[in-house]
Amino acid sequence: MSRIGLVVNPAAGRGRAAAAGPVVADQLRAAGHDVVDLTTPDVTSARARTAAFLQAPGADALVGVGGDGVVNLAVNAILTHAPHVPLGLVAAGTGNDTARSLGLDLRDPVTGVAHVVAALTRPPRRLDVGEITTLRQDATAADGDATPDGVRRFFLNVLSAGIDAAVNGRANRISRPRGPARYVIALAAELAAFRGFDVRVVADGVDLGDAGTLLAVANSRSIGGGMQIAPDASWTDGQFDVVTARTIPRRTLLRVFPRVYGGTHLSHPAVSVTRASEVHLLPGPGTERRLAPPPLVHADGEPVGRVPLRLRVVPGALAVLA
């Protein structure tokens, strides 16, 4: 018997996760496990209860029910308080990009929890994670170790800081329709207003320059419910795939960005991929007034702050029941 913490995001999937939570709990108990329900109506309380569970003796696993948001909560809790505890996931969210990349069932919670139960009998997989550290506003590549507030967070999938982040933020504010169609609507709205962002990237000490259109630091393949932003990214290679596109005219972006759904945007000459284990996201020179300030940065679909940021790969840091 294992002692398992269960955290459900009741808002995920427009209520689908809330309905799946009791099913998952019942199935885990039927398999002989001791289940501690950590679910609360709000994120702050859920973080606190999850942290308390992981800090107490006897925690054997943490299972999340929801989408990429509950994954981000669980990953940060585990790596902050109990890095040895493995993470299980039952997909019941909107985007489900973590579950999709892990090859998990995206629709049936009974199948999802059966996968977790079976995985509890085997050694977990080890996955790389990304570490996010806040830098000073005047940070440069040379003084990037500055951490004024000690803020450190982790992400598992993709961190976005270009139009991909702006689309993510707008999609989070849209209540209808449900599912990945929200991202399509958000994309159309952002494309209509696009003028480029004043941001640059330094990857393993190499200045990649202007990344005013697209900026994704990818530890895995997809965002936004299956958009293949970095189709060759791997959780086990110790590197990010840094996908960037310089500032381009809106008409060009209208042709390029829809190709993200199939991953064919990488063949466009404005788009480049650089592999790196440490990345700095920095404000641009600010000399081009028509460019917008960088958008709110998102990781695993969740807002994590604004540039400047330092990102590092932490190889094999997370144990996963998959």
Rank of each mutant, 00 (worst) to 15 (best):
P180D: 09
D207H: 09
R125M: 08
S101Q: 02
G224K: 03
V110Y: 08
A188F: 14
G212D: 06
A230Y: 02
D138L: 14
A161V: 12
T121K: 14
A114R: 01
L156E: 02
L104N: 02
R100K: 09
T111E: 10
R107L: 14
S160I: 00
N172C: 15
P123D: 10
P148A: 01
L156M: 06
Q137G: 15
V110W: 08
R182K: 14
A141E: 12
G179R: 05
D145N: 09
A146K: 06
T111R: 10
V199G: 06
S222F: 13
T133V: 07
R170F: 12
G144H: 13
G150R: 05
G225E: 09
D204L: 11
A146D: 14
A216S: 12
V184G: 09
A203H: 13
A118G: 06
A166M: 05
N172R: 08
V129M: 06
T140D: 05
I229F: 03
R100V: 13
I185D: 14
D128T: 07
G205T: 13
W235D: 04
S101N: 15
S101L: 04
N168L: 10
V199E: 06
P124V: 01
Q137T: 15
I163A: 01
A189T: 02
L156Q: 02
Q137N: 14
L187F: 12
R100C: 09
D210R: 06
E131Y: 04
G130T: 08
A233R: 05
S175A: 15
A142F: 13
P148D: 06
D232N: 12
I174W: 08
A118H: 03
G150V: 06
N219V: 09
V113S: 00
S175I: 09
A166L: 08
R173W: 12
F194A: 02
V129C: 03
I185C: 07
F154M: 03
V113A: 00
R107D: 14
G150S: 10
A165D: 00
E190Q: 15
P123H: 08
V167L: 05
V151H: 14
L104I: 06
G205S: 03
P177H: 02
N157P: 01
R100H: 09
L187Q: 11
G224V: 04
G196D: 04
D232Y: 13
A192K: 12
A216D: 08
G226P: 10
T140K: 01
T134D: 08
G130V: 10
A188K: 10
D237Y: 05
G205A: 07
F197R: 02
L135P: 02
